[in-house]
């Protein structure tokens, strides 16, 4: 067999594999969307759930998902940013840095159910935070931190060293170079990383089952005092998210339309994550364009 034929076979094989992956993905997405989208309506997206009757919605779960996401991001982003800047811009290549990197590596490969159980024992039980949005947000921080740190570090890595030299040669201090030259230049790629990790956090269930809880008490959307138990802003209330909701109604849902609600919720989840991904691409590209051309 000559090398030309080999080449053809190899390319054909690779096309086949890639095609298979795409096909599986499309089939999954198609199935979820086809069975879920018909369930969607304004009522479904905004109404509270019903435990025994049909016709419940996922309004509260959807809101909880976003609220939890925002809280988790507020906690994890500053930490991840600081860690990434330290690791990439300041840390010397020694055993301490290696240890930190390994720790991050291990943390990122922890199964999320382990993160969830740790969150349960530590935040819910030990710190008496109870099943609450706050416990959930902390658990998600653990889940998110390594991924986000890695992605921000990668963003910093894409900024060429000649930019750092340029800043320093201009009489900027190290810190000024990082904050005034490197970070602004890295913003598009950092933003993309943040939104993509938001997508992962948004779809996370296992880490939340034991921390944010599986119940979605009714919320009074006119009460914005965070200390009232029915206020949407209260971080100490239990809050079932969309992903947890899907898991729950599939395992123990007793409402007559459980199947439909599960399909609808899955579709909402998938669509939301798709939107995150598209937004990440779009915003990243736009910001980059604004920074690099007229």
């Amino acid at each position: 067999m000559n090398s030309k034929t080999q080449n053809k076979i190899a390319i054909g094989g690779l096309y086949g594999i890639a095609g298979l992956v795409v096909l599986i993905l499309l089939a999954l997405l198609g199935y979820i969307l086809a069975s879920g989208v018909p369930q969607l309506s304004w009522h479904f997206l905004t109404a509270p759930g019903k435990a025994f009757l049909k016709g419940g919605g996922v309004g509260i779960q959807l809101y909880n998902s976003f609220y939890l996401l925002i809280l988790a991001m507020l906690i994890s982003f500053p930490i991840a940013l600081g860690a990434a800047i330290y690791l990439y811009e300041y840390a010397k290549d020694n055993w301490v840095t290696t240890t930190i990197r390994t720790a991050i590596e291990i943390l990122s490969s922890l199964p999320s159910v382990v993160v969830g159980l740790f969150g349960f024992l530590f935040f819910v039980v030990k710190l008496h935070l109870g099943f609450s949005i706050l416990s959930g947000a902390f658990a998600l921080t653990f889940f998110n931190l390594p991924l986000l740190t890695r992605s921000i570090e990668d963003s910093l890595r894409t900024i060429s060293d000649v930019q750092r030299e340029g800043g320093l040669a201009l009489g900027l201090s190290r810190w000024e170079t990082v904050t005034r030259v490197i970070l602004p230049a890295a913003v598009p790629s950092i933003l993309t990383g943040v939104i993509l990790s938001a997508g992962r956090v948004f779809g996370e269930a296992a880490a939340l089952i034991y921390t944010a809880g599986q119940s979605a008490p009714a919320l009074d959307f006119t009460d914005w005092n965070p200390f009232n138990i029915s206020s949407p802003l209260n971080p100490m209330r239990p809050a079932e998210t969309l992903a947890v909701h899907i898991w729950k109604i599939n395992s123990e849902g007793i409402m007559p339309d459980a199947k439909a609600i599960s399909s609808g919720s899955s579709a909402v989840l998938v669509i939301a994550i798709l939107l995150f991904n598209f937004a990440a691409r779009y915003l990243g590209k736009r910001l980059y364009k604004r920074l690099t051309s007229a």
């Binding site: 060429s160 000649v162 930019q163 030299e165 340029g166 800043g167 320093l168 040669a169 201009l170 009489g171 030259v181 602004p184 230049a185």
Partner: peptide
């Protein structure tokens, strides 16, 4: 570095 400025091989505008 404010008093002794530097220009590099690769143009490196921010």
């Amino acid at each position: 570095r404010k008093e002794i400025g530097m220009v590099f091989q690769q143009p490196n505008p921010f």
